[in-house]
Design a protein around this nucleic acid. Sequence first.
DNA 1: TCGCCGATCGGCT
DNA 2: GCCGATCGGCGAA
Length: 209
Amino acid sequence: MRPRAFGAEFYDRDTEHVARELLGGVLECTVDGVTCRGRIVETEAYVGEHDAACHASVGRTARTAGLFGPPGSAYVYLIYGMYWCANVVTRAEGLASAVLLRAVEPLDGVDVMRRRRGVRRDLDLTSGPGKLCDAFAITGPRFHGASFTRGALRLCEGTPVPDAAVAVTPRVGINAKNSAVDWPLRWIVRDSPWVSARSDTRRWLNAAR
DNA sequence: TCGCCGATCGGCT
DNA sequence: GCCGATCGGCGAA
């Protein structure tokens, strides 16, 4: 059954709330007639031009223009010349912030994901921002600037995740000299095996106790 | 299981 | 030129 997509008003709010509430939601992407779905288990917030880890901290450029776009639009960029990362833009148009989709639990289209990824273990299909874009065939040319509220790329209502099952950590992959390195803007489903950076996450959660 | 390293290229200084 | 919101393979422990 086709789930219902979040509307633009869902994204026209504080980025932290959107990131938190996307946990348990469903990412859906249709390419070449095949639909893949996954339950979102990990997100990160990039909260604006004052956030040194946010691409928009350099201001509005050709690259970052998408971050200033309307709520619910896709900001898809290439990292390390090799991997795509998918974000959903938050807050009103003109405010540069977004939620990075970092990991999902595969639900539908798993065979296609396996073919696209070519990895040994299913756990490596979608447990990272570059991995999930590969598994779902999300690329910049296909989806940068598209809307997550309708069409081939959607974010949909799923089963909400209770606070007791959620953990918050600093974001992954932020350079140690970045002033925002420690900001707690990563949300995960605490016990999901599908989250990225598993050993780092375990270490951080243990140290925080 | 951990840590290191190379791949690969567009955007920015 | 430099470096990154990453990933997978490798060798060591």
